[in-house]
Simulated assay, not measured.
Amino acid sequence: MSKLVLIYTLFGDADEARRVSALLIAEKMAACANMLAPCTSLYEWQGEMREETEFPVLFKTIEARHVPLTTRLTELHSYDIPAILCWNAAVNSPYVEWAGQQIDGQR
């Protein structure tokens, strides 16, 4: 059975978050994407302190798709250096099975 991997990133606007999420699901890279509430991010960029509203998304995928999803997400993302965080998740078996079926028909 596959393991579930969570991939988190932030987008600069809700339309990009929705577009990229729908595309990664259609391309069978992710089983689903949770578009979270907008957040305020504070960071330094090119020597300047920034405060921006960003739109977080949590992608759920199987272990076999984690690297391809991260690569594709980097290609699609509008940020020069997007934060893409990945971690394995302890998850109930039926959900992992569902995710595998959504992505590549694994059972």
Rank of each mutant, 00 (worst) to 15 (best):
Q46C: 11
Q101F: 05
K60I: 02
K28N: 14
E97S: 12
E54D: 08
T71L: 07
T74C: 05
I103W: 01
T9V: 03
R18P: 03
Q101W: 11
I81S: 12
K60V: 04
W87L: 11
N88D: 14
S78F: 04
Y79W: 10
W45R: 12
L69V: 00
A30N: 10
A64E: 14
D80M: 09
L24P: 01
N34L: 08
A33K: 07
F11M: 09
E16T: 10
Q102I: 03
R50T: 12
H66Q: 15
A22I: 00
F55G: 09
T61E: 02
C86L: 09
M1F: 04
G12H: 09
R18Y: 02
W98R: 06
L73R: 03
G47W: 01
M29T: 00
L58E: 09
L23F: 07
E51S: 15
S93E: 14
F11C: 02
M49A: 13
A37L: 11
I84M: 06
A64W: 00
D80H: 11
F11T: 04
A33W: 01
V20A: 04
V96N: 08
G105M: 07
T70F: 04
K60Q: 11
A26E: 15
A83E: 12
R18L: 13
T40W: 02
E44Q: 12
Q46L: 11
L23I: 10
L23V: 01
S2I: 11
L76I: 06
I84Q: 08
H77L: 05
E44L: 05
A30I: 03
L69I: 01
W45H: 12
S21W: 06
A99D: 01
D15C: 08
L85H: 08
P94C: 02
N92L: 05
V5N: 10
L23Y: 09
T70V: 05
D15Q: 15
C86H: 02
G105T: 00
E97C: 04
L76G: 10
Q102Y: 00
A14H: 07
Q46E: 15
Q102C: 12
L76P: 06
M1I: 07
E48N: 14
C39P: 00
K3G: 15
Y79S: 10
A22V: 07
Y95W: 09
Y79G: 04
T40Q: 13
L58R: 06
P94Y: 02
C32W: 03
E27P: 06
L6D: 08
T9Q: 04
C86K: 08
D80G: 12
V5S: 07
L69W: 10
M35Q: 14
P94R: 05
A33Q: 07
F59N: 01
A31S: 14
L58F: 05
T53Q: 13
F59Q: 06
A26H: 09
E51R: 13
T53C: 10
V91F: 04
S41L: 05
R50E: 15
S93F: 05
E75Q: 15
L69D: 06
Q101N: 13
T71N: 13
K28E: 13
E44P: 00
I84A: 06
